[in-house]
Design a protein around this nucleic acid. Sequence first.
DNA 1: TAGATATTTTGAAAAACATCTAAATATATT
DNA 2: AATATATTTAGATGTTTTTCAAAATATCTA
Lengths: 95, 95
Amino acid sequence: MLDALFKALSDPTRREILGMLRQGDLTAGEIAEHFNISKPSLSHHLNVLKQADLVLDERKGQYINYSLNTSVFQDVLAWFVNIVNNKDRGDNVEK
Amino acid sequence: MLDALFKALSDPTRREILGMLRQGDLTAGEIAEHFNISKPSLSHHLNVLKQADLVLDERKGQYINYSLNTSVFQDVLAWFVNIVNNKDRGDNVEK
DNA sequence: TAGATATTTTGAAAAACATCTAAATATATT
DNA sequence: AATATATTTAGATGTTTTTCAAAATATCTA
């Protein structure tokens, strides 16, 4: 779960896709135009993001619209805050 | 940079190492004892974490002590907050 | 229904990754 | 100096990931 999530985020192309989707939904084709990789490759990346629940897809006629699923980011944020705050089991030492 | 960072986080063993280090510094050997993988493998994981600046290592005699480098988490947190808040270009700040 | 467009699936090849054993390096102890 | 302990580096192997071209699927339009 965090596994698929971080794996999905570990690729720069995929992170850029997420950045693009912040500004608004896009079709697979529109996303593909911004990159120098084939459509099948793009499709693969979108699928990885989908498996990680980072994006949602919805068919709109011929097109498929992709959008950000921000709710999942909460989980990752929680993980990070935990690491940084050092407050997992309330038993930590000072200094 | 975010690249190495997320790649480092995308492995469950490595995330568990980070969790262990929250409670305090540990030597490579102490970390290795908690896992069912060989010491060379562990060493490899520690190196990946080091390349990503997620941990620091300091030789202490025969031992090498590993510790969390929390400062790097700031960068990732910033990235996440940006994605979630939809605020990329320094404009629009209120709230 | 035939043809055009949008997207995904399949199958294959190359690159990256995780893991192991064996060997090397560094330090400590006798 | 010889031996023991802690850790890393090298080299090999199996697995996963990225990528592409070709084929398949879905929808739209004429």
